[in-house]
């Protein structure tokens, strides 16, 4: 059983949902990323998504775009990313998911890239532009390395396709909560609730459902969980907080924000 599967199993037994936090590797600096990870662990995050910057992040809104741009300017690359993951792994056993775009993996070679990041301590991969229709080689390489593959679905994904995508997914399935890019802060509409309920029904408990894009505060997190999600995924809100916080306070500020979100996931 993978670290991610274990985590969800453990949470289920405690009657909790998962808090999944996204931060960008190397933003605002590598040191700050480590402080944020410490804060997230302390605040009770269950899974951490580490973004690896890509020059053309077409599924991301302004906050993650900007974070990625700054990380790239400071020289974030695969080697530095691996170094960061290894440092994190010395401190914590928390499941780590790498989120980036297809070209980064393709350029290094799917098999080579996946085996290297797996060895460093990454448990799962999210690629917003990797469609299941194009995923044969990627899936093969992931399977060989026992890497979880977390695909995305959207409110307009048909039930048949949700089933297909779930069949290629492991760890959890990522539901994009809104029509839009990451980081939107709009009021959720009825279609989001419908999408969560529909996905849960379609999945029939076969794989946990994480919901992200535009979840930025405890009230929204509560709404998402009430609608039936197994995990809330929060990204841009953490990055915004990191940007406006001085480096020495990142750990504590991120920690208390994570705690405020985690609280919502404890149903008892």
């Amino acid at each position: 059983m993978s670290r991610i599967e274990n985590k969800f199993k453990d949470l289920r037994s405690k009657n909790q949902k998962a808090l999944i936090a996204y931060i960008m590797a190397g933003f605002p600096s590598e040191k700050d990323t480590l402080s944020a990870v410490r804060g997230l662990v302390r605040g009770g995050a269950d899974i951490i998504e580490l973004g690896m910057p890509f020059s053309d992040p077409l599924a991301d809104g302004p906050v993650i775009q900007n974070a990625g741009f700054q990380a790239l300017q400071k020289g974030m690359n695969l080697e530095k990313f691996l170094g960061l993951v290894k440092k994190i792994r010395k401190e914590t056993d928390i499941p780590l998911v790498l989120m980036t775009y297809t070209n980064i993996l393709f350029r290094h070679g799917y098999a080579k890239f996946i085996s290297i990041v797996k060895n460093a301590g990454i448990d799962g991969l999210i690629l917003p532009d990797m469609s299941i229709n194009e995923s044969k080689d990627f899936l093969q390489a992931a399977k060989k390395n026992k890497m979880d593959t977390i695909f995305l679905i959207s409110p307009n994904t048909s039930q048949d396709r949700i089933k297909k995508i779930a069949g290629s997914s492991s760890g959890f399935l990522y539901l994009v909560s809104v029509f839009g890019t990451t980081g939107g802060q709009q009021q959720f509409q009825n279609y989001t609730t419908d999408a969560i309920k529909n996905a849960k029904k379609t999945l029939g408990g076969k794989i946990p459902l994480g919901v992200g894009f535009g979840v930025s505060n405890p009230e929204q997190a509560k709404f998402i969980i009430k609608s039936g999600a197994d995990a809330i995924i929060v990204g841009s809100a953490f990055l915004r907080l990191m940007e406006s916080t001085s480096p020495e306070k990142i750990e504590s500020k991120i920690g208390s924000f994570a705690a405020s979100l985690k609280k919502v996931t404890i149903t008892e």
């Binding site: 297809t102 469609s131 695909f151 995305l152 679905i153």
Partner: peptide, 8 residues
């Protein structure tokens, strides 16, 4: 067709 699921 390497695209985000929303536009599939």
């Amino acid at each position: 067709r390497y695209i985000p699921e929303t536009i599939v």
